[in-house]
């Protein structure tokens, strides 16, 4: 079995609002897989259902390995020091401290700092270290770089790549296309509580090659058009403007970005 996680027909509603509406995807062992979606798409709900932190209504979740979880919003007692927290969780999970991993995450530098004195980036690193105390096969990271500065993001991305190199399967939720493009092997874009797209970022990029944005400016107005057949569309638009007797002052033709494409899929357009 090469699947670390297999989700089938997962549903979850809050009252009458259906957040997950038959979600399906699987994550292969050793890959970095991202759940993408706009705010409220159900990324955190999906993760929390898989992690066992939230009950789901129907569907099946199969997990093949020990899970380590870094939550999007996480906290610890105000006066608990970083290394004390790691020791508590490691002792409770009957695992030994992975000193190399703690060193890589810079936990020893933070060892004596109480939790309330840590910066956002330091807290993210500490919670990643806590997730590693179970020596997990599968690591869940919910918006891992939210609130981090550029330096913090680069550093955390490097640590995530190192974890993949160690053979960990990583599933992360994000709404940052650049982060996903930079890190992930495959992605699932959530829309309407389902997977609207599953595949590699490269495959998603290839579909963009056929997609064009056309901006036509006249003396009185600016109009934007979208097309997958640039030649025919442009000819047709020029004819329309000529028939109306409008003088074109400028034409711009751009390929759509990965980000725009993601937003379209995520919004179900």
């Amino acid at each position: 079995m090469n699947e670390a996680i297999k989700i089938s027909n997962l549903t979850k509603s809050y009252g009458t609002h259906a957040v997950l509406n038959g979600l399906d995807f699987c994550v292969q062992k050793g890959e970095i897989f991202a759940l993408l979606g706009i705010n409220g798409a159900g990324k955190t709900t999906s993760l929390e259902c898989i992690e066992g932190l939230r009950k789901y209504d129907s569907g099946t979740i199969a997990i093949n390995g020990i899970m380590g979880i870094q939550l999007q919003s996480a906290s610890l007692p105000k006066y608990m020091k970083a290394l004390e927290a790691v020791k508590l969780f490691a002792k409770w999970n009957k695992t030994s401290l992975d000193k190399a991993a703690l060193d890589a995450l810079g936990i020893y530098e933070l060892a004596k700092k109480p939790y309330y004195q840590l910066s956002t980036g330091q807290k993210r690193r500490l919670h990643l270290a806590l997730a590693l105390t179970r020596n997990p096969d599968i690591l869940f990271l919910d918006e891992p770089t939210a609130g981090l500065d550029v330096e913090g993001q680069i550093s955390l991305h490097e640590q995530i790549r190192q974890l993949k190199a160690m053979g960990k399967t990583i599933i992360l939720a994000s709404h940052d296309m650049a982060e996903v493009e930079n890190l992930c092997d495959r992605i699932a874009i959530l829309s309407g509580g389902r997977s609207a797209y599953i595949g590699t970022v490269k495959q998603l990029g290839e579909t963009i090659g056929k997609h064009y944005n056309i901006t036509i400016q006249t003396e009185s107005r600016t109009e934007k058009y979208e097309s997958e057949n640039i030649g025919d569309s442009l000819l047709s638009l020029l004819m329309q403007y000529k028939e109306k007797g409008e003088t074109i002052t400028d034409i711009q033709i751009n390929r759509g970005s990965l980000e725009q494409h993601f937003i379209k899929i995520a919004k179900g357009e």
Binding site: L53, I69, L71, A74, P77, F89, W92, N93, L130, T133
Partner: peptide
């Protein structure tokens, strides 16, 4: 209240520490 009305309880639960601890 610090433990049970905040995200601390979720961190405990997510990382294998029982809620009653």
């Amino acid at each position: 209240v610090e433990i049970y009305s905040s995200d601390i309880k979720k961190v405990y639960k997510a990382n294998g520490v029982p809620l009653y601890l």
